[in-house]
Design a protein around this nucleic acid. Sequence first.
DNA 1: GTCTATACCGCGATAGAC
DNA 2: GTCTATCGCGGTATAGAC
Lengths: 201, 201
Amino acid sequence: MARTGRNYPKGLARREEILEVALRIVAERGYNAATIRELAEAVSLSKTGLLHHFGTKEELFAEILRRRDQRDIESVQSVGDARELLSQILAHNADVPGLVQLYSRFSAEASDPDHRAHEYFAERYERNRVDLATMVRALQEEGHVTPAADADALGALLLAAMDGLQLQWLYDKSFDMRRSISALMSALLEPRDAPEAEQGA
Amino acid sequence: MARTGRNYPKGLARREEILEVALRIVAERGYNAATIRELAEAVSLSKTGLLHHFGTKEELFAEILRRRDQRDIESVQSVGDARELLSQILAHNADVPGLVQLYSRFSAEASDPDHRAHEYFAERYERNRVDLATMVRALQEEGHVTPAADADALGALLLAAMDGLQLQWLYDKSFDMRRSISALMSALLEPRDAPEAEQGA
DNA sequence: GTCTATACCGCGATAGAC
DNA sequence: GTCTATCGCGGTATAGAC
């Protein structure tokens, strides 16, 4: 049902418009305000008219998050320094509180095995854990992180820290997420490779 | 409205019964199934009959989480080793997936400033950050953690890691939360004080 | 104080007409 | 591809019985 019209110009344009408006509404009025009725009204459609394009509310939100991930992955390519990678993602996310709220709430809701987006997040977590563990291993091979460290466990920890810090930030926008992730990276990286370890960077 | 009858035996007994049943339903059938109608039926009350005791669904859940916090705080007193503290909390939580699910989803929902439990969580995060930072400072004074570390930033990080690891665990119950928190503690603690640092503990 | 009945609102989703 | 109509559900508010 969500597949309808993905190959027709009119339908594609509508989908883009809906995704854009949905994100704007979440950002401006919060996740709760982003109901099907509200979104439909904002793009001058009926409820069912909107559902025609995405099938369910969950698929619509999942599509928004998929695109964010895609953007993050692309931006990651341009970041050479592993130390700065997570910090830069947090910095970018701090500019789009609506997306952060959507991600945090949606990922918590979808922890229910019956949720339509459950598999999406389960796979996303698994994949990100592997990717981050790979990053830790690379740092180990380069001598920046002690070989004694458990790379897999630290990969999962980095992912957990990102999620947890963003949740705290949602409760207090003055909370400095980057400072905490920076303190963590300082602890992980060998002193000899990061002698002048500041937090604010 | 939620204050009613907190001093009368019958009302007190009902409140206890409701809290107990609510937790059981969340554990057995998930957060989504824990609706007012469902809970009321389980304790043989009408919807409004149940609401009489807690005023709103949010207050009921907040009360459950307040009690968990209280238990955690008390159990903390008996744990001397800071290294084992968070690991033990995770171990205990792994025995009550319903509570973890309730906490994760409820805390994400309440990130909305208009949510009834928003202030509760905002204060809880602030307090826990301070407490964990204090713990880090104590470790610094004892020489277990380098004085160069940012205690406040690490306090927030530890809290974030706890939340994030539990969310990942909700998606994959075979995920080892303690292994990640243990790897983090190994990185934070000076090698000379934790020479035989295993992960599985 | 404890509790029931009722009536209401907004939500997501579906069926079927156009 | 879009609409109207309708459904079931969760949460809330009020009146009033015991």
